[in-house]
Design a protein around this nucleic acid. Structure first.
Lengths: 344, 344
DNA sequence: CTGAAAGCGCTAACAC
DNA sequence: GTGTTAGCGCTTTCAG
């Protein structure tokens, strides 16, 4: 590349010197301040273009106390819903000139604490967080809110209200829809594989499940309800116990699709006909649930919607500069939908 | 939370004043400089702990010219390989105290250009990039290398050598393995659905495919080779053309699993028995390829390995502070493996 | 071992 | 319209 010599230092001072202007003027041009002569503006712009000068955002951030950067904490990138949300949020924020620092807690509360601190150290302008499955105490986010950095929770969120914007799926309704569907199909012996009840989403989905069953006078058997991390492994163990001896369940509701898929595979391996003898419903509409045979009935959470709402809200908070008062106190609930497939 | 008053300004000066020390000393403690009295060090640490002081990395970054932040550009988060790589890289770098700014180009060269510039503006310490399918000219990364920010490419990388570390899968071998497998199964009429040949990975996979066929004297029919973005839609169109009139292919090799899945679904819908009349092989070992019925033979790229190598290399570059000379000139090639499944 | 002082690159009053 | 000046919060010589 024939870059001819190139001014060593890439600073506003250099531009100023070269153009025989003051740094202030350059800065004004760069920030589209009004009171600048069009001629000078053009001259500066041309030179900026030519030299490829790029503003040092650390310096300007230090001065203005803004970084144009947003932090995002998720349990894991690879969870379908989060992948989608991140995708949407990153595109949305980029379009508005914001960078995104994405972090994953790996569902570890300690890492989450660390991340909240690190993001504060970076003085991000806002933080978006989907918490750990186990986060009950949210005080590690205080350092952000106390320093006027707005925090926005989604998916796995604080249950008691917290001075932060909250966006979540309608998990109660999701659980209710899924369970009602099974009941309406005539299932009487419904097992539910839930995540740990430390987490709002599992609490709500369970509540929906219970409501549907009791409402239709279908018994809720405690020993058919499991609470554990929703891994394929745990799912298989649960299945093993359920099918150790009769009576067997006639339906399994799973609090996520990974579990539902593992359940289905177990059923296929052990020769339990699905949906004839066992109906299965999952949660999240992971693409795999559509592709497996038989395809799995599930709850669509519309992660792109969640992402778009997050973007809208975070921009609102960012605009309102300081943002304390602008916080939506009411959680924003994103509707869900049942997608019926072959497994029921 | 009972935060009692809390010093308004969270700065080293405040600590200094409160502790009747100079900012310099505080800074030394924070940076583990040797020549500090243990007593003072402890006093400072205790106070830091108590007040929850957190260093402003913009200020220190401005001073030291380091941000402890690495930028990452991928085409899309949601592509399986990238999701895995990002996961590994983020965890790996976090463990070493680095933040990661993750960006997606959406396979747009313009966005990619923009991102390179933005990352430079953030003065990240290094950039990791998997390029757009269409990136032929890589000069938009020059701004980074010229300013001594090491750039490390992976997956989709510059073809002519570029002053940057390169890490990629063994795409030639992947293509070769997949095609050889089909040949060995006796397939004679093999169609190949490739991505555009602007991109190293597709060039190499194609070369592997061609080598395997010619080596075994299986004809390479130009009209059975497709070059287009590897979407499900395009795959279906290709299938439609292939099966418009005989002779029909007896195998389809796809340059990614999304395509292979779409091909399989098309076959299922139109009643072409797989693998009896049509064998299918994909690329990437997307989880869906394992779950669909029949499961799809594919090439495992070991994205976690790729991620780990990236982390190792990037840390090496970061250590060597300036990093120009430490650049691996030879590309690092990550081996691939054929995973045989039911579709062949 | 600790302090004083300069400055990283930028912006925002305040002058003119 | 433009320049001067004073920091943002931190690190780093250089003195002591």
């Amino acid at each position: 590349m024939k870059t001819p010599k190139q001014t060593k230092k890439n600073s506003i001072q250099e531009l100023a010197k070269a153009l025989r202007l003051s740094p202030a003027t350059i800065s004004r041009v760069l920030n589209n301040h009004p009171h600048v002569h069009t001629a000078t503006r053009n001259r500066v712009m041309a030179f900026v273009e030519k030299t490829g000068y790029t503003r040092n955002v650390m310096a300007s951030g230090l001065r203005t106390n803004k970084t144009n950067t947003v932090g995002l904490i998720v349990p894991r990138f690879s969870m379908f819903v989060h992948t989608e949300v991140i995708t949407t949020v990153q595109n949305g924020l980029h379009a508005h000139g914001y960078n995104l620092i994405i972090c994953q807690s790996n569902d570890s509360v300690d890492i989450e604490k660390d991340l909240a601190r690190t993001l504060y150290a970076s003085r991000v302008d806002a933080v978006i967080a989907a918490c750990t499955m186990f986060t009950k105490d949210f005080s590690h986010f205080d350092i952000l809110t106390e320093n006027n950095i707005p925090v926005l929770f989604y998916d796995r969120v604080p249950m008691q209200s917290y001075g932060a914007c909250i966006i979540r799926g309608d998990d109660f309704r999701g659980g209710f829809l899924a369970a009602s569907h099974l009941v309406q199909l005539g299932c009487k012996r419904i097992s539910y594989i839930s995540g740990p009840l430390t987490c709002n989403i599992y609490i709500d989905r369970y509540a929906g499940f219970e409501k549907a069953l009791t409402q239709h006078k279908v018994p809720v058997r405690k020993d058919w309800i499991f609470y554990h991390e929703l891994t394929a492994d745990n799912a298989r163990k649960a299945m093993h116990r359920l099918f150790a001896k009769p009576p067997y369940p006639d339906a399994i509701m799973a609090a996520n699709d990974v579990t539902a898929i593992a359940v289905l595979e177990y059923a296929k391996e052990t020769g339990i006909p699905v949906p004839e003898n066992l109906r299965i419903v999952g949660y999240s509409n992971d693409p795999r649930s559509a592709i497996i045979t038989p395809s799995i009935t599930t709850i669509e959470q519309f992660p792109r919607n969640i992402g778009n709402v997050i973007v809208a809200e975070v921009l609102k908070l960012l605009k309102s500069d300081g943002g304390k008062s602008a916080v939506e106190t009411e959680p924003i609930i994103i509707p869900v939908e049942l997608i019926r497939r072959m497994s029921t």
